[in-house]
């Protein structure tokens, strides 16, 4: 890694900032409290996102079905595609930790 004058000066500046920066480390109890409230909010947010996703999936599927009933052969194709899409998306969501 090439260390030129600018990088050296910048590193010195950051080291100085690190030294002068006052950091108040919270107590373990405070951290636990923050985690508890944050965890609740996080789970709620994830639940809301999942609900939005399910509603969107239902709306799209309804639209697909609506189109498909007017074209007989397309009905089965659209059904299978929709099911596969929902299954893949649920797997993705599960991977992200939004659903268990």
């Amino acid at each position: 890694m090439k260390q030129d004058d600018w990088i050296k000066k910048m590193d010195e500046t950051w080291t100085d900032v690190d030294k002068k920066l006052h950091v108040e480390v919270p107590e373990t109890d405070e951290i636990m409290q923050q985690i508890s409230s944050g965890e609740k909010k996080y789970r709620e947010r994830m639940r809301r996102e999942l609900l939005r996703f399910i509603v969107l999936a239902c709306v799209l599927m309804s639209l697909y079905i609506l189109v498909a009933v007017h074209i007989t052969w397309a009905f089965y194709v659209v059904q299978i595609i929709s099911l596969i899409a929902v299954f893949i998306l649920l797997l993705v969501e599960r991977n992200k930790g939004r659903i268990t």
Binding site: D18, L21, V23, V25, P26, T28, I31, M32, I35, S36
Partner: peptide, 22 residues
Amino acid sequence: DKAAFGQLFQQYYTFLYRYLFK
């Protein structure tokens, strides 16, 4: 254990704060 996590995170608090400030 949440309390153990709290203690562990405490050890990295300053390091992480400095990084985020920069």
